[in-house]
């Protein structure tokens, strides 16, 4: 079921690309359960211009269980672990439903970036602290800095 649905999703993505996702494809030939995606930094945010590579590990019982999605391009966000790329997003955990797909999930990740996130469950203490203290200029500066450092021009 997992592989069959993934084929469907990839097919649908190719016929109808997502404005958020520049690339979605198997990481290597013949292995459908491990994919690579490139997410575009949302426009008019500090992530704009960034292209973020993510890896997706799809469990064999997908879509009953969510994919494991991680940033491989370092991403500065209160709910993204800068080092491991782990994403703290309900959708990827408790509130996953099989009606979601890889693309809608990646789009949700992009929305998480533009929404600014929740500094009260930080995966990134620094940017979370700036946000909690209300230093939005500082937080945005930090995000821009890292986006430019790691995610530009690829």
């Amino acid at each position: 079921m997992a592989a069959k649905r993934l084929i469907k999703e990839l097919d649908a993505y190719h016929s109808d690309p997502s404005p958020a996702v520049a690339i979605l494809q198997p990481a290597d030939d013949g292995d459908l359960l491990h994919l690579t995606a490139v997410l575009l930094g949302p426009q008019e945010t500090a992530y704009e211009g960034g292209t973020f590579t993510l890896t997706l590990a799809v469990p064999p019982n997908y879509p009953a269980a969510p994919p494991d999605i991680r940033f491989r391009t370092p991403c500065c966000h209160p709910n993204v672990n800068f080092k491991t790329g782990e994403i703290c997003l309900d959708l990827l955990k408790g509130s996953w439903t099989p009606a979601y797909g890889l693309i809608s999930t990646l789009e949700a990740v992009q929305q998480l970036l533009s929404a600014g996130g929740n500094p009260d469950s930080p995966y990134n203490l620094d940017v979370a602290r700036l946000m909690r203290e209300g230093d939005l200029v500082g937080a945005e500066a930090l995000v821009r800095f890292y986006t430019r450092l790691y995610a530009w021009g690829r």
Partner: peptide
């Protein structure tokens, strides 16, 4: 779908 971008907490 109603996309829930609530961070898992």
């Amino acid at each position: 779908l109603p996309i829930d971008v609530t961070p898992a907490v």
